[in-house]
Amino acid sequence: MSAISREDVAHLAHLAHIEMSDAELDKMTGELGVIVQAIASVSEAASADVPATTHPIALTNVFREDVVGETLTAEEALMNAPDSVDTRFRVPAILDGE
């Protein structure tokens, strides 16, 4: 189990879209290190032949019939929008020059 570096945390923060100051990165690196250490034994707990459980209760084939249901009005859809134009959500430029 490799230790978590500050660069790792910076990368994770980037993946998670959370801006972090240098001080926050330092603090998070320390805390995460401790937590990861504490839970590291999990990776050795189960042998290869133990199947993974993704769902606590095993159900299969839960489907919906292809029938149109109730929709939101545009007003309801946009009632919490931080910014909108007519009936569309508005967001700042997507990329800084892709």
């Binding site: 994770l12 990861v36 999990v42 189960a46 199947p51 993974a52």
Partner: peptide, 20 residues
């Protein structure tokens, strides 16, 4: 971190086995 490439099996994958 637990889901990221290279760590999934050791972390998330193992945790799901522990669940079993």
């Amino acid at each position: 971190y637990a889901l990221s490439a290279g760590y999934y099996d050791a972390y998330y994958g193992s945790a799901q086995k522990v669940r079993t």
